[in-house]
Design a binder for these strands. Structure first.
Lengths: 139, 139
DNA sequence: TATCTAATTGCAAATTATTAACATTTAGTA
DNA sequence: TACTAAATGTTAATAATTTGCAATTAGATA
């Protein structure tokens, strides 16, 4: 069920290196967002330079393979660009995330985009912050 | 028309220092978000330490005097916690911001909050990114 | 009003996340 | 197989923010 990253890379005009495939393979199927450090840890045995990871995260984002998120966690998180547009709820206690998507929010945002004085609205970011069930009960 | 920051500080249990008032006075009435560096520059003649500014921005946010924003600009931006809830549109070209508020977006977010599996949703952040009219025409 | 104490500030150094410069290596093409 | 642009490793730099600690001060209290 795992994605064919070689093809993805080729399609995007990016060279198909073992390092790149290794990085992309770290990304969870379920779109859970991860950061550079996490990838670095997971690939410790492969001895991949952290700088290379940063560089590739950037390339992948440019290419549209990854989406960069702003989860207020101090570092940038990325997720595989899935086929469904969604947002995240972040637990301010443990950092866990959950995704959600809602048509009425997207519609409302689109309406704003159209009526805005701005020349063009290209993207948006929306995150909810709260306390997840686990943290809420443990406390 | 300018706010009485001494009272605000006292109310929040924060000591009423000249430094603090100076910092708060830098914040524009129109809620335009600013960052630590901007405040530092504006207060150069008062010779206030940048660390002190960072510390106070943090205290002020804790106290609810300021709101911290995530505008994808490399540093944290803050605005006076106004009485009206709103969000920002950020120009990805020049960094200028414009605010907007929309009831249907808030309502949709509230609905999500209620139906979420999360224990509690406390806050949310929503930013739109695009190119402002000025940048759109100049280009 | 003088004194006291916790809160605040300044200063220097540390940390964290990220980027830059540059030499070396390698994937993909000719 | 050779070539070249792209990718990688290494080291060092940068930007934003935080920490530790000593000196100062606001505001409470005697």
């Amino acid at each position: 069920m795992s994605k064919d990253f070689s093809t993805v890379l080729r399609t995007k005009g990016l060279k198909n290196t073992p390092t790149r495939k290794a990085i992309l393979e770290v990304f969870p199927e379920d779109c859970k967002p991860i950061n550079a450090e996490y990838i670095f840890d997971r690939l410790k045995k492969k001895d991949i330079n952290l700088v290379t990871i940063y560089r590739n995260l950037d390339s992948f984002e440019q290419a549209g393979i990854l989406k960069r998120l702003n989860l207020d966690k101090g570092s940038a998180y990325y997720e595989l660009t899935g086929n469904h547009h969604h947002h995240h709820i972040v637990c301010t206690n443990c950092g866990s995330t959950e995704e959600f998507g809602a048509h009425d929010i997207e519609n409302a945002i689109n309406k704003i985009s159209k009526s805005s004085l701005f020349g063009a609205i290209n993207t948006h970011s929306l995150e909810l912050f709260g306390v997840c069930k686990k943290c809420a009960t443990v406390k």
